[in-house]
Write a protein that binds this DNA or RNA. Structure first.
Length: 818
RNA sequence: GAGGGAAUGCCGGAGUGGUCAAACGGGAUAGGUUUAGGACCUAUUGGCUUAUGCCUACGGGGGUUCGAAUCCUCCUUCCCUCACCA
């Protein structure tokens, strides 16, 4: 049988579109359900099968919820600004704008062909000034609220992208976008005060229905740690350093200040100046190497610090392994009990002073627990400063308190999370609405002048293209009317994606970023779906925005995404991550032509649980195609009539299971059940139209086109996609399995054993404790003509010489003849 | 170093206290159909053996329980994320 899937699919896609089947009804009385997939950056190469998997996972949920009686908001848009588009466009010699528009068009077409049930009236693209105008609007609001500030800071500079990039995007010293090595430069940049919400971002995780892994990653990223800030005296100045290990303070034998520390030179003596400068140069070159392989290096600054615990004079080094902007950029080094300090001390011949009992070796510091030794402050009459003999865990507190009491320290909380530097020296982004005026300094563009539209006429090549349009740059200062210059930096695209989910609900509003009532109705997002790679960037920024906008009275909820689901990655047929360079990309257009999208959807979901990775295989999809064809053949050959009781009972239990599976993203199990269901259906002599309809409904979230086609063949006039989800008929489910009676089974078994064993006048039965009441001893005794005694299997006083109780199973008794 | 996850048959993977030699699929083998291929259908796919039977098996050891793939504990291996954060 040849089935023209392409034709069927196209037909139903057209009919859905014409009937606006999936457009959300904003006035609906039904309970709302907002489901969202992370919007893609529209690349020129179009969708691949991995996208198809991602969107299918969301689509199945959207369709299931729709049929289950929810008013579903399921929009899609495009994260269309950003470096990749700019670079790709430059590469082919095109302007990013038409280039990206084309890509969006192509994506939209492909998404429609996948059969995804988006409401396209809600779409948006961040490249349109109607959208990024509100980026600028929020920028001004944040600026006013003190959430945005400027700071000169060492930044990650990517020489290839010609821009500053965030720590998150520069992990491992490699540019995330282009894999180039990062340089350190000191520039004045725009920062968003994400750290203001560090604690709330951490606490808010608790109530979220997110994968534990993602929550753990965020917790890690925020990196809250409790410790003590201790004052060290260096050259009559006070340097406060952060430590989580005050218990080791008596073991501090040197200090290390970060090579990037802004006040480093204050510490350097004239004699050491040359050495330090030489060292700093070498750090610059070394930092280009893979960070993980960096050797701990340092140089003596010439200065000494005083250890506040014992008054000892200890040298201060500058080191390449100390993070400049964590804590205070200087550390106390305890070589005996920290491996890094240990290696450093060995290298430069610094004293290693053990203060916790334990085994130090030639190559390893002792990092375990132990009793304190050598930890007494001298000349302390009250012996308050004597800590020898204490367990170090206890000593942490005691020494901390001692230092605090002596006003040499204080308890502090530290976060790894940094403020987010979000300005970029690139063209294809939202212009930062600031005007530089010689007289007035930095002047925000007045709200009424928004949007600051990104000029199209620029030259690409070296540096920031925006600097090449003089006409655009030259403006009057809004404050004094004098000559001003526009800010030529643009916003990181993560700014765009930090609030797009709010815009969908009111995407055409040109007065406000969104209407408060609409937000109230639809937000927060009930189910968010996307890859785990966004755990520490997009997902933190979006949460930050939500909290910031809440405090600015734009929103009245705390968390944007109630539930999050991470889909597994689709690998190529070779088991490798799909990528153009490996040539293992599977193109949905071709798959659709060859097998039909419904087969592909079914196949993708049947491969593995949706959160697990899976490999594409040509063989595998053929199996799914067989299944889909089988469904058609059933509907060609079936006899309409009355379903058998057995089938009805099984169908009902399947409705129950499949419903559960859809609810909880267990799509793979749903595909298994569906296979069982249709295998069962093919064996039926006669089935009612109603039951066939129910079967199709169960199938329709995964194979929507086929379900519609066959639903119509059954004589239905409406769309199955928005029909009511089948209800379970409980009576009929429980009908199942009624036939086997425990007593009859026991009688049968006893008779069998009697036939094998000669001796024995008493039948001893052993059953599950919960079955004890169900067994009719009299009836069994009568049937087998013996005396019967019964025990629960866990009865310790039972008579069971041969351990036959072990044979018992639910529904089956253990038998001993004695 | 910190955190997260996993280990089941030839393979992908169900199974989270009993009805499990383990769903479903793939692969393999045999048979049917077919001019052949493909497709489709049927059966088999741990071992002994043919018994309403036994043994072996869910990474390894130990434990809880009448009973463990499932719970606890230790170990091993693998994957992922973060990581010079003091």
């Amino acid at each position: 049988m040849e089935i023209d899937f392409a034709k069927i699919e196209k037909e139903w896609q057209d009919r859905w579109e014409k009937a606006k089947t999936f457009n959300v009804n904003e006035n609906s009385k039904k309970e709302k359900y907002y489901i969202l997939e992370m919007f893609p950056y529209p690349s020129a190469s179009g969708l691949h099968m991995g996208h198809a998997l991602n969107y299918t996972i969301g689509d199945v949920m959207a369709r299931f919820k729709r049929m289950s009686g929810f008013e579903v908001l399921y929009p899609m848009g495009f994260d269309s600004l950003g470096l990749p588009a700019e670079n790709a466009a430059i590469k082919v010699g095109e302007h990013p704008k038409p280039f990206t528009e084309k890509a969006i068009e192509n994506y939209t077409r492909q998404m429609k062909e996948l059969g995804i049930s988006y409401d396209w009236t809600k779409t948006l693209a961040t490249m349109h000034s109607e959208y990024y105008k509100w980026n600028q609007y929020f920028f001004l609001k944040f600026l006013k609220a003190g959430l945005i500030y400027r700071k000169k800071a060492p930044v990650n500079w990517c020489p290839s992208c010609n821009t500053v990039i965030s720590n998150e995007q520069a992990q491992g010293g490699i540019c995330e976008r282009c894999d180039s090595k990062i340089e350190i430069r000191h520039l004045e940049e725009w920062y968003l005060r994400t750290t203001k919400y560090a604690d709330e971002l951490l606490k808010g995780l608790e109530g979220l229905d997110w994968p534990d892994k993602i929550k753990a990653m965020q917790r890690n990223w925020i990196g809250k740690s409790h410790g003590v800030e201790i004052d060290f005296e260096v050259n009559n100045d006070t340097w406060s350093i952060f430590t989580t290990r005050p218990d080791t303070i008596f073991g501090v034998t040197f200090m290390v200040v970060s090579a990037q520390h802004e006040n480093l030179m204050d510490l350097v003596t004239d004699e050491q100046k040359k050495e330090v400068e030489k060292f700093l140069k070498s750090v610059g070159s070394v930092s280009e190497k893979e960070i993980a392989e960096l050797e701990k290096k340092g140089v003596f600054t010439g200065s000494y610090a005083i250890n506040p615990a014992n008054g000892k004079k200890i040298p201060v080094y500058a080191g390449n392994f100390v993070v400049a902007d964590y804590g205070s950029g200087m550390i106390m080094a305890v070589p005996a009990h920290d491996q890094r300090d240990f290696e450093f001390a060995k290298k430069y011949g610094i004293e290693i002073r053990q203060v916790i009992s334990g085994k130090l070796t030639k190559t390893r510091a002792w990092i375990g627990e132990g009793e304190l030794i050598n930890s007494c402050a001298s000349g302390d009459a009250a012996r308050e400063g004597h800590f020898d003999g204490l367990e170090n865990v206890e000593a942490k507190k005691k020494i901390g308190n001692w230092l605090i009491k002596k006003k040499l320290g204080r308890n502090v909380v530290n976060y790894k999370l940094r403020d987010w530097g979000f300005s970029r020296q690139r063209y294809w982004g939202t212009p930062i609405p600031i005007i530089h005026c010689e007289k007035c300094g930095l002047v925000p563009v007045p709200e009424k002048d928004l949007p600051v539209v990104l000029p199209e006429n620029v030259k690409f090549g070296k540096g920031n293209p925006l600097t090449t349009n003089e006409k655009w740059i030259k403006v009057k200062c809004p404050k004094c009317g004098g000559a001003g210059k526009r800010e030529t930096e643009t916003m990181d695209t993560f700014f765009d994606s930090s609030w797009y989910f709010l815009r969908y609900v009111d995407n055409k509003n040109n007065k406000k970023p969104f209407d408060k009532n609409k937000i109230k109705k639809w937000l927060p997002v009930d189910q968010y779906i996307g890859g785990a790679e966004h755990a520490c960037m997009h997902l933190i920024y979006a949460r930050f925005f939500t909290k910031a906008l809440r405090d600015l009275k734009f929103l009245d909820f705390d968390e944007p995404f109630k539930a999050l689901f991470n889909q597994g990655m689709l690998h190529g047929p070779d088991g490798e991550k799909m990528s153009k360079s490996k040539g293992n990309i599977v193109n949905p257009d071709e798959v659709s032509k060859k097998y039909g999208m419904d087969s592909a959807r079914y196949f993708l979901l049947s491969l593995a649980a949706p959160d697990k990775p899976r490999d594409w295989s040509e063989k595998g999809i053929k199996g799914s195609l067989r299944f889909v064809k089988k469904i058609f053949s059933i509907f060609e050959n079936v006899m309409f009539g009355k379903s058998s009781d057995d089938f009805v009972s099984k169908l009902n239990s399947m409705v129950k299971d499949v419903t559960e599976f859809y609810k909880s993203f267990q799509y793979r199990k749903a595909t298994i059940k569906l296979k069982e269901l249709f295998d069962l259906l093919i064996k039926q002599k006669e089935v009612s139209k109603e039951d066939l309809g129910i079967s199709l409904k169960l199938l329709s979230p995964i194979c929507p086109h086929i379900a519609e086609e066959l639903w119509e063949k059954l004589g239905n006039k409406d769309f199955i996609s928005v029909s009511e989800w089948p209800k379970i008929n409980k009576l009929k489910v429980e009908n199942k399995g009624k036939g086997t009676d425990l007593n009859l089974k026991i009688i049968e078994d006893v008779k069998y054993v009697l036939g094998k064993v000669e001796n024995g006048n008493v039948v001893y039965l052993y059953v599950m404790p919960f079955e004890l009441g169900k067994v009719d001893v009299g009836k069994i005794g009568k049937a087998v003509g013996k005396k019967v005694e019964i025990f629960a299997v866990n009865d310790s006083g039972k008579f069971d010489p041969e351990g036959k109780a072990k044979k018992a199973k639910p529904g089956k008794a253990g038998i001993y003849l004695g």
